[in-house]
C-alpha cells in the first residue's frame, strides 16, 4: 500500500537547509497496521506529510496504492493530537465534513444526506459517542473530541488512515479505551494504518509492525513484527513477551537518542 524508497527531505530552516529525513525506506502492506516510533524531532510528522502527498521528497520515491504520489493522495483520513473540530459545526456536521469534499460523496451530498447522516451516527455508536451528534465540540471532553476526530477521519471509508499521536493528549484510561476502539474499527474495516506515536506500549498493542526511526535526519533503523494473535486484549500488555518487545524497542530508541541531534529539531 505504501512504499518509500531511499527518501530524503530537506526544508529551509533559519540557518540553512535542514535535513528532516535521509535514506528512509519503509514498506506497509495493504490492510497492515504499522506504527512508527522514534525520538522527538526525528521527522515522524514529515513522514506523514510525505505519504499523504502534502510535501514532495527532495530525493527518492513515494508510492501509495501502487502509484507514485504527485500531490495530495485524496484517499487518506488523518487524525492528530488535537482533535481540530470546527467549533461552529455540531459533532455530526464535523464528521460529515470529508463527505462534502471527497468525490463521489461530494456530488451526492444533498441527495443522499440522510444516508450519510445514518452512516455518521453508526460510526459515532462504534466509538461510544452515540447520541452526541447534535452537541457542539466544546460540550465534549477531550477524549470525546478525539473520538469524534477519529470518526471524521473514517467517515469516507479511506483506504489509508494516518494517525499522528492521536492519543497523546489523553489521560491513561481514556487512551487505553481508545486503543480498543481503534483496534475494533480496524479489525472490522481492514484499512491500512500508519500510527505515529511516542508510546511504545501503544505501538506494540495496536500494530502488526513497529518501525523505529533514528534521530534527525530520520531513517528507519529497525522494523519489528508483532505477532500476537488478534483480536488482542488489553491484558496482553502485562504479559512477558509484550514487555520484552517494549523493552527491546525502548533500548533501541535510547541508543539513537545518544547520537547528538541538531539543535533545530522542531518537526
Amino acid at each position: 500500500m505504501i512504499k518509500l524508497q531511499d527518501v530524503a527531505l530537506a526544508y529551509a530552516g533559519r540557518t540553512g537547509p535542514v535535513l528532516a529525513l535521509d535514506g528512509t525506506s519503509i514498506d506497509v502492506a495493504r490492510g497492515e497496521f504499522a506504527a512508527v516510533v522514534g525520538p522527538s524531532g526525528c521527522g515522524k510528522s514529515t513522514l506523514m506529510k510525505l505519504v499523504t502527498g502534502l510535501v514532495k521528497p527532495t530525493r527518492g520515491s513515494v508510492e501509495v496504492a501502487g502509484a507514485p504520489v504527485r500531490g495530495p493522495v485524496k484517499v487518506a483520513g488523518m487524525a492528530f493530537q488535537n482533535a481540530n473540530l470546527l467549533p461552529w459545526r455540531t459533532v455530526l456536521d464535523n464528521i460529515l465534513l470529508p463527505l462534502e469534499i471527497v468525490e463521489p460523496y461530494r456530488s451526492q451530498f444533498r441527495s443522499k444526506k440522510a444516508e450519510f447522516v445514518a452512516r455518521a451516527e453508526k460510526l459515532l455508536d462504534t466509538v461510544g459517542l452515540g447520541g452526541f451528534g447534535n452537541r457542539f465540540p466544546w460540550e465534549l471532553s477531550g477524549g470525546m473530541q478525539q473520538r469524534a476526530s477519529l470518526c471524521r477521519s473514517l467517515i469516507h471509508e479511506p483506504q489509508l488512515l494516518m494517525l499522528d499521536e492521536p492519543f497523546a493528549a489523553l489521560d491513561a484510561f481514556t487512551r487505553e479505551e481508545l486503543w480498543c476502539v481503534m483496534r475494533d474499527v480496524w479489525q472490522r474495516l481492514k484499512f491500512t494504518v500508519v500510527l505515529v506515536t511516542h508510546d511504545l506500549r501503544e505501538a506494540v498493542f495496536l500494530a502488526d509492525t513497529v518501525h523505529v526511526m533514528s534521530a534527525r535526519p530520520g531513517r528507519i533503523i529497525e522494523s519489528r513484527r508483532v505477532d500476537f494473535a488478534r483480536p488482542r486484549d488489553l491484558e496482553i500488555c502485562y504479559e512477558k513477551e509484550f514487555a520484552d518487545i517494549v523493552h527491546v524497542l525502548r533500548n533501541k530508541i535510547a541508543q539513537v537518542r545518544q547520537t547528538p541531534a541538531p539543535v533545530e529539531a522542531a518537526s
Partner: peptide, 29 residues
C-alpha cells in the same frame, strides 16, 4: 487556520477554495 486542519482537508483532495469555504471564511467571521 490551524495547519493540521488544513492538512486534513488537503489530504482529502480539497482545493484552496474548499478550504476557504469550509474553514477559512466561517472561522474568520
Amino acid at each position: 487556520i490551524e495547519p493540521e486542519l488544513e492538512d486534513v482537508l488537503r489530504a482529502l483532495g480539497a482545493s484552496k477554495l474548499d478550504v476557504m469555504r469550509k474553514v477559512g471564511i466561517p472561522r474568520s467571521m
